[in-house]
């Protein structure tokens, strides 16, 4: 008897060992399969490590310009809806993509309460380009552009995207999950399911930010990186649901 089987719609990826993306993508793939959305899913991809999700979840993908996924998803969803097509449109973006260069697109889609699902992966750095400071980088955290540790007095403070959206806009759902251990991974899956189901129920905009370990750019072993998420990142970025529209 098989104890665990990979979702049939998940293909091999080329992410680094110990990276949180792989876990998150597996959870999304499982959820899509469980909700029976394999033939309705369009993954709208940001630029960065999220590019690695190209072609690995089956269905349709669309590779956007850096930061513009929410705008692309808006056009796609509104048009397909006008054609009577019931599709599940998910953006998959890093924190740099959704919360730095694409902050305008992300917030404006939330402002309009577009009926889309936004997943943003927060690994506290610009990982694809080799670990530069992001708006999510923790105070004092060393990156290739904050070599002495992030000085927030100079750079501004860590950005809290789901809280910002939950407090300002009339959206369906805003939450933050973590994939640092089994307990959190189980919780993350529940958040994913809600965020996707909301769209299918036409409830409106949903966003989930995932705290994700980045062993490569943090210069840590995978186990230590997961520990860093649990002990450091969750202090700055509390895990939980910030807005749940009934």
């Amino acid at each position: 008897m098989a104890l665990y089987e990979l979702p049939t719609n998940l293909k091999k990826h080329s992410l680094c060992p110990g990276c949180g993306h792989g876990i998150i993508l597996r959870l999304i793939a499982e959820t899509i399969e469980e909700l029976g959305l394999q033939d309705k899913k369009i993954l709208v991809l940001g630029v960065g490590c999220s590019c690695n999700a190209n072609g690995i979840l089956g269905g349709d993908d669309f590779q956007c310009a850096h930061g513009r996924a929410s705008a692309v998803a808006t056009g796609m969803k509104l048009y397909l809806e006008s054609q009577g097509k019931d599709v599940c449109i998910i953006t998959y973006q890093g924190d740099g993509d959704a919360g730095v260069i694409g902050l305008a697109e992300t917030l404006n889609a939330a402002y309009r309460n577009e009926n889309i699902t936004v997943f943003t992966i927060n690994n506290s750095n610009f990982a694809m380009t080799g670990g530069q400071m992001s708006w999510t980088t923790l105070a004092g955290q060393k990156t290739t552009t904050s070599v002495n540790g992030r000085d927030c007095a100079y750079t501004g403070n860590p950005i809290h995207l789901p809280e910002m959206i939950a407090s300002q806009f009339d959206v369906a759902y805003a939450a933050r999950a973590s994939v640092c251990d089994v307990k959190h991974i189980t919780q993350a899956k529940k958040f994913i399911k809600k965020a996707i189901q909301n769209q299918m129920d036409k409830k409106g905009y949903s966003i989930v930010e995932f705290l994700s370990q980045c062993p490569t750019n943090w210069g840590m072993a995978p186990v230590d990186a997961a520990k860093y998420v649990a002990e450091k990142m969750t202090v700055e970025y509390p895990v939980g649901e910030f807005k749940v529209k009934e």
Partner: peptide, 26 residues
């Protein structure tokens, strides 16, 4: 038909791109 007043021109062309790939005459 679908009309949207976007937040700026960057979003406008990206919305057009998303709609075009989904079959629109955008």
């Amino acid at each position: 038909r679908v009309f949207i007043q976007a937040e700026n021109e960057i979003a406008s062309i990206n919305m057009v791109t998303g709609a075009a790939v989904a079959g629109a005459r955008a």
